[in-house]
């Protein structure tokens, strides 16, 4: 009895401590909030379904077990019941419709900037995953950071997601759901922090040996503090192409800040080959592909080798 009690206490402690930091259900911004609400809404219905099944299950097993009915009881021959089939088809369909409507609404709502701040111009940050680090470019502010970002609170951020190599996934659970980063493709993700604080972001799609440590920090601060940080960053040393190409090599790195961005040399959302060329020691200049006969090529738009995706 004692050991059973001790075991229960142990389990209870473990469960409670493990359930105290359910980040996804503790949203810090409007995107995560919409998602958390959808999740809680669905949990309600799922609990109902689970309850119905569990109760029926228990009642039936208790009532019709052989020890109760005795070995002489011969069950009746029942082939089915059309009414019941209709009931347990229609009710789930109704539940699904009730779930599907807000789901589709939310899916489309998340393709746009959050409503409450739709009057503000979103801050654009290009987020690029490179094995195994995150490179962030602020094109308007002309700064670049590695493995961390600062954002102002109550302001929509438009993340433009791409990868220099593997398919990663950009995820800041406190602020919202994730989206994949792919080479030669550009995905868009709107996020926003409504509270000042430091949030953790990471790669959520397995990319090999260094995947687990491919994390970054997000500091959400007041508008003034943010602008101060931007100014400081603009005074940081310039990003050179040499330094940038170092970042293309595999490995982890510490947080770094630069002025200028890599977008002047490459947009990984359009160019899938840059990182490979750097790693192979090849030239990354487009004009240097001397083996190719360009005379009959269609150079007017590089759209053929890339696609825009809006999330």
């Amino acid at each position: 009895m004692k050991s059973f009690f001790a075991l229960s206490m142990f389990l209870a402690v473990m469960v409670l401590s493990g359930c105290s930091n359910l980040t996804v259900l503790d949203p810090k911004g409007p995107v995560a909030e919409q998602q958390a609400n959808l999740i809680l809404f669905s949990i309600g219905f799922m609990l109902f379904i689970v309850l119905v099944v569990f109760v029926l299950f228990t009642l039936i097993l208790v009532k019709y077990r052989e020890r109760k009915s005795g070995p002489e009881y011969e069950p009746p021959h029942i082939e089915g019941n059309v009414f019941l089939e209709i009931v347990w088809t229609v009710i789930p369909v109704i539940i699904l419709i009730v779930l599907a409507v807000p789901t589709v609404q939310t899916i489309f709502a998340l393709e746009e900037a959050p409503e409450a701040t739709s009057h503000k111009d979103p801050i654009v940050i290009h987020a690029t995953s490179v094995d195994w680090k995150w490179v962030f470019s602020y094109p308007e502010e002309n700064i670049e950071t590695v493995n961390y970002i600062h954002i102002p609170e109550d302001h929509p951020i438009l993340f433009k997601l791409a990868s220099a190599d593997s398919m990663g996934s950009f995820w800041i659970p406190s602020l919202g759901g994730q989206e994949y980063t792919m080479s030669g493709m550009m995905n868009e993700l709107y996020l926003q922090a409504d509270e000042v604080g430091e949030y953790r972001g990471r790669n959520a799609n397995f990319t090999g040996e260094g995947f687990t440590e491919q994390v970054f920090t997000v500091t959400a601060e007041s508008q003034e503090d943010y602008e101060e940080w931007v100014e400081e960053a603009q005074d940081a040393p310039e990003l050179t192409q040499e330094k940038y190409n170092e970042l293309m090599l595999k490995g982890h790195t510490e947080e770094q800040t630069f002025s200028e961005t890599h977008l002047q040399w490459v947009d990984h959302g359009m160019d899938a080959e840059y990182a490979t060329k750097v790693r192979n020691g090849e030239s990354t200049d487009e004009d240097d592909s001397s083996e190719m006969d360009h005379s009959e090529m269609n150079h007017d738009d590089s759209e053929k080798d890339s696609e825009e995706h809006s999330h």
Binding site: V24, Q35, L38, I39, S42, V50, F54, G177, Q178, A204
Partner: peptide
């Protein structure tokens, strides 16, 4: 018999995952 309650738990969480906007948080 144990399949019934356990599979229902798995199945309803499948419906939760099917709700794409929520899946952006559950995925992976």
């Amino acid at each position: 018999l144990a399949f019934i309650p356990n599979f229902v738990i798995g199945g309803v969480t499948g419906v939760m995952l099917a709700m794409a906007a929520a899946d952006y948080q559950y995925h992976n």
